[in-house]
């Protein structure tokens, strides 16, 4: 059985790949996709630790999985809204280029 560190390492790698993707991609959809990747990486880490802590007691172990469950629900809602916003923007500009959407100036 592989130790928890391996799973956490994998989670870290996936997370950073997702982060780099967020910064590198220019289309809003692609950025969104990478955010989903990051979320999943976090889920993996949680489940791995849930497994690790299950040895000490039920509540600790099962709480990790419950958290992932909730995160999944949140992610679903978030995707719905996010894609809705994207569609609305695309209607206005016919482009999803993030750099062109640079009106967030302080």
């Amino acid at each position: 059985m592989v130790g928890t560190e391996a799973y956490v390492t994998l989670s870290a790698v996936l997370f950073t790949i997702g982060a780099v993707g967020v910064l590198t991609r220019r289309s809003a959809i692609m950025i969104f996709l990478c955010v989903e990747l990051m979320l999943n990486a976090a889920n993996l880490a949680l489940v791995a630790y849930a497994y690790q802590w299950a040895g000490t007691g039920l509540l600790t172990g099962i709480s990790g999985q419950t958290a992932v469950f909730i995160i999944l629900a949140v992610a679903a809602a978030e995707v719905a809204i996010g894609l809705g916003i994207l569609v609305a923007i695309f209607r206005n500009r016919a482009s999803t280029d993030v750099d062109a959407l640079s009106e967030v100036r302080l």
Binding site: M1, G3, E5, T9, A12, F15, T16, Y51, A54, L58
Partner: peptide, 26 residues
């Protein structure tokens, strides 16, 4: 980030739990 996180994970070696116990619990 990746290096840091991996190092962080490696620095904390834990005793891998007993698979049987975990299976029964979870």
């Amino acid at each position: 980030a990746a290096t840091g996180l991996i190092v962080g994970a490696m620095l904390d070696p834990r005793q891998a739990p007993d698979h049987a116990v975990v299976r029964d619990t979870l």
